[in-house]
């Protein structure tokens, strides 16, 4: 695996791509500017719970296509906000990367 920051950037980009796809195909309302600090779910997040499910599953599939590894991004703390890996794009990328490394 390449350098960590590089991986992180790739996964962040992959998530942003998927948000943009959902914007185009499903009319998802998302901020124009997306980066790793953008809030996803809970608090100021722009996803409702159904959109969250759709995005997480899309990201799982995109990761499998890109890295050839089937990871599960399910998390028991999803709905309790403090430690949720779905807080921000960066948090989701970090979580995905940890899953990828553990696989």
């Amino acid at each position: 695996m390449p350098h960590h920051d590089d991986d992180m950037r790739q996964v962040v980009d992959l998530i942003i791509d998927n948000v943009n796809q959902l914007k185009n195909t499903q009319g998802l309302k998302a901020p124009a500017q997306l980066d790793s600090a953008t809030a996803l779910f809970g608090g100021d997040g722009f996803l409702d719970s159904m959109a969250l499910v759709t995005l997480v599953v899309a990201v799982e599939q995109a990761i499998e296509e890109k890295f050839g590894t089937n990871v599960s991004l399910a998390d028991p703390g999803a709905m309790s906000q403090e430690h949720s890996p779905y807080r921000t794009i960066g948090a989701l990328a970090d979580y995905a990367l940890r899953r990828l490394r553990a696989a």
Partner: peptide, 13 residues
Amino acid sequence: ASMNHSLLTPVST
């Protein structure tokens, strides 16, 4: 209990 969509629920839960 655990409140979560099934697509986001780990099998351990």
